[in-house]
Design a binder for these strands. Structure first.
Lengths: 129, 129
DNA sequence: CTACGAGTTCAAGTCGACTTTAAGTCAAAG
DNA sequence: CTTTGACTTAAAGTCGACTTGAACTCGTAG
């Protein structure tokens, strides 16, 4: 497969694939006439990368997934280890967003005539706590 | 109040306050010996800015809140208008995070011996849908 | 022959929300 | 006096994940 085919399959730009290679999370593929040619194993690698991105992992964490364990550590153990942190982080972020929704509703219920009044109200509320 | 006092009250750095002024969401305060001095109205403004940040608004949206309406438009109307989009956006983001959690659990349940096998499994799953 | 499309490299640009740095000013304390 | 500490400015740097641009090389179709 040529790089453009891989890009199409995964819905990425070719530049993204080259970038992944550059930062070391995709191994350099073999070349034909200086052009990258990808085999199945490269495709599988990329599938893992993409799934990890979808589950909220950063590229740095993906690098950890691949290279942060002693060779031979089985995938379930790797995923599990990284998931601990990530689940906590996701729940934290969900909470933050839900708090935003609450605050949004509250601020919408103001009866202020001017925005400065809103500010005054907010400060009073804050002091009470 | 000096800029450092304002920063302390709001838990911001002085540079952030100057930045807000620079991009126009805080009005330039009066000066004493070339130094910024803030009065109550500036404090109220900043309280509104901070609350808006806490509810997920970008600085651009905050600018809209202040200057994107015909003068005299009451705060409830302003907040409401901007809230529409924001609530939808927040729910969208919450959904994405919850999907991540689901995917995370699923990927953790793999029994693969090597990460490439994970990739293969992921691709097969994807094709089924 | 030449033009085209797809690939290559390396460096630099993008986004948002700030922070950091460098160089200068100024009032109060020692 | 001089030092200190808080302030001033404008410009540049940061972060992550890419994208974009410029300049170049191929193989192939007309």
């Amino acid at each position: 497969m040529a790089i453009s085919d891989v890009a199409r399959v995964f819905g990425l730009r070719t530049s993204a694939i080259r970038y992944y290679e550059q930062i070391g999370i995709l191994p350099p593929p073999m070349r034909k006439n200086g052009r990258r040619r990808y085999d199945d194993s490269a495709i599988f690698r990329l599938a893992v990368v993409q799934r990890a991105r979808e589950t909220g992992f950063t590229l740095e964490e993906i690098r950890e997934l691949f290279f942060g364990f002693t060779e031979g550590t089985p995938p379930p153990k790797r995923w599990h280890q990284l998931s601990q942190r990530k689940v906590a982080e996701l729940r934290e972020r969900i909470k933050r967003l839900q708090l935003m929704e609450t605050l949004l509703k509250r601020v919408e219920e103001c009866r202020c005539d001017a925005l400065d009044q809103c500010g005054e109200r907010i400060l009073r509320q804050r002091r009470k706590k």
